[in-house]
Nucleic acid binder design. Structure first.
Lengths: 216, 216
DNA sequence: CCGAGCTTGTGAAATTCTTCACAAGTCCTC
DNA sequence: GAGGACTTGTGAAGAATTTCACAAGCTCGG
C-alpha cells in the first residue's frame, strides 16, 4: 500500500527516470507499458520497476501492464510535481546562468524567482529574463517570497559561507553545484551535483576497465 | 591489500571527495589527518573512510593518522589523475559553454580539445579559448586526436543519436548531461548527471520531510 | 465461458554496502 | 623502557537494496 515510510534515495531517483520515460512514451502515443519495457528504457530491471512502484501503491493491471497517462500522474503526485516550486539561483556566473535558462527546470514547475550575485557589475543585468539581484538582499527577499529551494552555483571557496546565509534566510532545501560537501543543520535537505567528481569516476573506470560496478 | 577487485561506485565517489578535502587541508598547511577528521569534512564516518581506503592498501599510521601529501598522491594515482585526459565537449549551448570554462576540469588534468555543435552559426566561434568545431568532423578528429572522454551537453531529444555517433567514433567513455538514459554497448562507460532529476529528488524530500534516507 | 498467454505485486533469498568493535601498531611522556 | 592515549586496518555483524520466483489476476480468441 502507499506509504510515507522511508524510501531510498535510489528509488526516488529511478521514479524520476520512469516519469521521463513515460512522458516520452506518451508523446509517441503509447497507451500502455509493461514493467519490462519501462525497465529497458530506463536502464534497470522489471523487478526493480515493480518493487519501486510497490512502495507507493499498485498502479498496474496484471496481464496488461501500466496505463501510461495514469502512471505519469501518479508519479507526478508522488514526486510532488503537481505544484509550483519557487527557486533562487545563487551565482550568476556561467553555471548559474546556464541553469537559469535550463528548460528542464521550467518544464517541471520550477520557477526561478531570482538570480543572486555579489558582483556589482552583474547585479541589475538580466539573465534569461530574470534580473540579477544583489546577494545582500537575499534574506529580505526570502522573507517576502519564501522560496522553497536554492540552487547554489558559486565557487567552492565560498559555498559553505553562502550556504549558511541561505539557511539563515530560512530556506530548507539546497541543490549544490559547488564541488565541496556542505555542512548544514539536519533539517536542511541538500542534494549535490559534483561534475568534477563524475569525471573522476569516469577516469577511474577507464583506468580500471571491467572492474567497476556499472550504472547508467 | 591493493586490489583490482570490483570497487563500488559509491566508494570511488567518496575517494574523489576525500581527495578534495585532503587538498584543501594541504593548502592550509595540515600535515597529518585522522580518518575521523577526514570523515567529518567529507560528510561520512571514520569507519567508512578506513574501509574505502583499505580496498586499495594501507596508507595510514596507527596512532597518528594519514600523511596528507602522501594520501593525496595515492588517491590521485588510484583515480587515474596523474595523467592528462583528452576531452571533447559536444553541444556549444549554455551548458556546454559553461562546462568548457569550468575550472574544476582543467585543474584535474582534463583538457578540452574541442567543442562540437551542428549549428553553423556557432561553428568557428571561440568559447573559452576553444574553437567550436563542426559535429560532422567528429569521427575524423577523433581518429587523429583519440580523446578518451566525451561530455555530452546536448538536448535530450538528440542525445541518443549523438551518443551513437560518439561510440561509432571509437570513444569509450561518456559523461552525459542530457536528461535521458543512454543506451550504449556494454564496453562503453557512461556516467550521467541529471540536474532535473536532482531537483525532483529535492521536491520529493520536501514533500515527504523526514522520511527519506539523507545523503550529503 | 474456458484455457493459454501475459504481467503484476510481493514475500523470501541473495547480494551489496555500511557499521561495529577490537587487536595491533605508533607515539609521547615520564 | 613502560604505560597511557590514539588511531589504523579488518573480520564479522548488521542494514539496506536488489533479484528471484511464483501465486494471483487480467485479457483475448474461439
Amino acid at each position: 500500500m502507499h506509504a510515507d515510510k522511508p524510501i531510498a534515495e535510489s528509488t526516488v531517483r529511478r521514479l524520476s527516470l520512469y516519469l521521463r520515460v513515460l512522458e516520452h512514451a506518451m508523446e509517441r502515443g503509447i497507451r500502455t507499458i509493461s514493467s519490462e519495457e519501462l525497465a529497458d528504457e530506463g536502464g534497470t530491471t522489471s523487478a526493480q520497476v515493480r518493487k519501486d512502484l510497490s512502495f507507493f501503491g499498485s498502479f498496474g493491471t496484471r496481464g496488461r501492464g501500466y496505463h501510461v497517462a495514469e502512471l505519469v500522474s501518479e508519479l507526478q503526485r508522488i514526486l510532488g510535481l503537481g505544484r509550483e516550486w519557487r527557486v533562487y539561483i545563487i551565482g550568476a556566473g556561467k553555471i548559474g546562468a546556464a541553469l537559469a535558462s535550463y528548460h528542464g527546470f521550467v518544464q517541471r514547475g520550477f520557477t526561478v524567482l531570482g538570480i543572486y550575485d555579489n558582483d556589482p557589475r552583474l547585479v541589475g543585468t538580466i539573465v534569461d529574463g530574470v534580473t540579477v539581484r544583489d546577494f545582500a538582499t537575499l534574506a529580505d527577499d526570502a522573507r517576502r517570497e519564501s522560496p522553497e529551494i536554492v540552487v547554489l552555483a558559486v565557487p567552492g571557496e565560498v559555498a559553505q559561507a553562502v550556504a549558511e546565509r541561505v539557511v539563515a534566510a530560512g530556506i530548507h532545501a539546497i541543490l549544490n553545484f559547488a564541488p565541496v560537501p556542505l555542512h548544514v543543520p539536519a533539517h536542511i535537505t541538500v542534494r549535490s551535483v559534483n561534475m568534477a567528481l563524475e569525471l573522476e569516476g569516469l577516469a577511474y573506470a577507464i583506468v580500471h576497465r571491467d572492474s567497476v560496478t556499472p550504472a547508467a
